[in-house]
Simulated scan of single mutants.
Amino acid sequence: MLLTEMAPPPGAQGLAEMRARARTARRRAFIALSAAIALLATAQVLADRAQSAEQTLPLAVLSLAVFLMALPALAITQYVWGAHARLVRQKERELYAVARSGRARPLSRLAVACGWAVTLLLGWTAPHFFREAARYAFADALRWAAEALAVMSVAAGVLFVLWWARDAVGMLVRALRSGGSPGDPWDPGRGARPREGAALWTGAAMAVAALVGARAHLWEPGTAVVYALLTAALVCGVVTGE
């Protein structure tokens, strides 16, 4: 009799459902992150190309609004993802005496941290666009707020690097001692649509990277190309979340 034809051990089906919810929360967190960066970069690329203060102002307002909405959205989606992941690891330890789902955790955390860094760097440039729009008083007020946020962000980044390094080393040591965690053939959701999902995530990542490169003036795509990249990033993200 094949292993997958046997009755699953007690709790395995519930664990599979918990893993599915954790994967959904992870997808939503990455969708929010990629969408925020894509929208911010696009608004700022277009603001850079505006020909007058009147054309720059609505794009500057849009950029600031996206940034202010992105911060709580990223924090909430990533908190939900982390909460589901912790529940999965706790249940895995109860069933198997070892957490099976955390092997990619250091890489995913590093990717999220890089996404936060890019988002914050884009947000810090908001005062520049209001100055270009001739809103000097508001630009000065934003500059002070951006400087305060920059100090807090740098401090948080240093703490994250120390915590991440300790956590990554601890996971490596535990993996070497345990010799790997047991497989779980009763997880029907794992591996579903792997190729399609990977292709969509790759497409979204490439579109977001291209928009960030355009914002950094590493290349100068046409306006139509900018809109096409934004559309590709959002569509790929939405499809992966379905």
Rank of each mutant, 00 (worst) to 15 (best):
L87H: 12
L87A: 15
R103K: 06
P106A: 11
Q90P: 03
G102W: 01
P106C: 10
W116S: 03
R93F: 12
A117I: 07
R93T: 05
G102H: 02
Y79F: 04
S108T: 08
T77I: 03
A83V: 04
R86D: 15
W116P: 00
A85G: 02
H84R: 13
Q90N: 11
A117M: 14
A97H: 08
Y79L: 05
L74P: 11
G82R: 09
C114F: 15
A113W: 08
L95Y: 13
A111F: 08
L87V: 07
V98D: 14
S101I: 01
A83L: 02
A75L: 07
R100V: 02
R109K: 07
L95R: 12
L74Q: 15
Q90H: 09
W81E: 02
L87E: 15
W81Y: 10
E92S: 02
V80G: 01
A83M: 08
Y79Q: 09
T77H: 11
A113Y: 06
A117L: 15
E92L: 02
W116Q: 05
I76E: 08
A111T: 04
R103L: 11
A99W: 02
C114A: 13
S108W: 15
S108Y: 10
R105L: 12
V112W: 13
L110R: 14
R100P: 01
E92F: 01
V80E: 09
V88S: 06
R100Q: 13
V88D: 10
R93V: 13
Q90L: 14
V98E: 15
R93P: 00
S108V: 15
T77S: 14
V98I: 13
T77A: 13
V88N: 07
G82M: 03
V98L: 14
G82F: 05
